[in-house]
């Protein structure tokens, strides 16, 4: 389970820690932000206490209308055991009842100079990307003409060697052997390398090489959206391989369906060129030009014409 510590947000958004220092190690488990407006009015029935709470001008000016006792009571209800923290926006003054509640319960209270809406959207974006579902895949991720191509296949089939040749041809390596994948939005998978092995490539017989120092900064990329999977497998003469390219197969990673091509490997087949062309062809298809489809239509026309002439 992915989680973010409150102190990470303090660091990232340069929040000023006002009180409740012992609570900065609290976990944030959800990316939603709560603006407890109705709660300030006393309605705590559906209080989302596990979210980061954001108090802006509206909420703070409302509570000045309450008497001190009610104010303290509501602040105490706001600070539950699972509340990761409370953030005050616009650099507004922190109500002293909130400070009391924070000291009593250990919920950290922070302050930001940003306006509430702006802070809210930036926090949501950041948390969504950090708390996104992730997985790790055995494969190599390369950026080919702007298409993120994930090369998969059994160990020893030649993934890294193919990646090396692709890098040599001017494409960019994202990750070798182990690709960490995050689902950032509904239909978007982003892959990156584990910190420890980024920029590295393992080639049998050579060992571990550093693509960044060998080929320069232009040969690598920190992360890339995955558009296409190329699955390499040893040529199996009994298996049918796609000869036309008219159907599109997909495979699921996390919740996203990604197009997949299975490419058989045999000595003498230049995989780097095949994959490069697959990426270009994929781009072309996305632009609406489908060579296989067009050819098939021409063939159908020719057959129909031949039939008509026959009569």
């Amino acid at each position: 389970m992915v989680k973010v510590l409150m102190e990470e947000l303090i660091d990232k958004f340069q929040l000023e820690l006002v009180s409740g220092e012992e609570g900065v190690h609290r976990n944030i488990l959800v990316s939603d932000i709560s603006r407890p407006g109705l709660e300030m009015a006393g309605y705590f029935n559906f209080y989302p206490s596990d979210r980061v709470q954001l108090l802006g001008q509206t909420e703070l000016s409302f509570i000045t209308k309450l008497d001190s006792e009610t104010r303290l009571d509501r602040m105490l209800q706001l600070c539950t055991d699972e509340t990761p923290g409370i953030i005050i926006s616009r650099g507004l003054e922190v109500p002293k009842e909130l400070l009391i509640a924070s000291n009593q319960t250990g919920v950290p209270v922070m302050r930001s100079k940003l306006t509430t809406t702006r802070l809210s959207s930036r926090l949501t974006n950041y948390l969504e990307s950090r708390l996104a579902p992730t997985t790790a895949v055995h494969g190599v991720l390369v950026d080919i003409y702007g298409i993120g191509v994930l090369i998969t296949g059994n160990s020893g089939v030649g993934k890294s060697e193919t990646a090396l040749e692709l890098v040599k041809r001017g494409h960019r390596l994202v990750a070798d052997d182990s690709v960490e994948i995050r689902q950032e939005e509904e239909e978007r998978l982003v892959g990156s390398a584990p910190e420890l092995i980024k920029h590295l490539l393992e080639i049998r017989g050579l060992g571990i090489i550093n693509v960044m120092t060998l080929f320069g900064a232009g040969a690598i990329r920190a992360q890339k959206e995955i558009d296409l999977i190329i699955h390499l497998e040893i040529w199996n003469s009994k298996k049918m391989y796609d000869r036309l390219g008219m159907d599109e197969e997909t495979t699921k990673i996390i919740d996203v369906d990604i197009p997949i091509l299975t490419v058989p490997v045999r000595p003498g087949r230049n995989l780097a060129v095949i994959i490069e062309v697959a990426a270009m062809n994929f781009r072309l298809k996305r632009m609406g030009v489908n060579a296989a489809q067009q050819f098939s239509e021409r063939l159908n026309d020719a057959i129909r014409l031949g039939d008509e002439e026959g009569y």
């Binding site: 790790a136 055995h138 059994n154 160990s155 020893g156 052997d177 182990s178 092995i197 393992e202």
Partner: peptide, 11 residues
């Protein structure tokens, strides 16, 4: 990670 891949193990 896949145990047949050294980079995966080391990561």
């Amino acid at each position: 990670v896949n145990c047949k891949s050294i980079m995966g193990i080391m990561s």
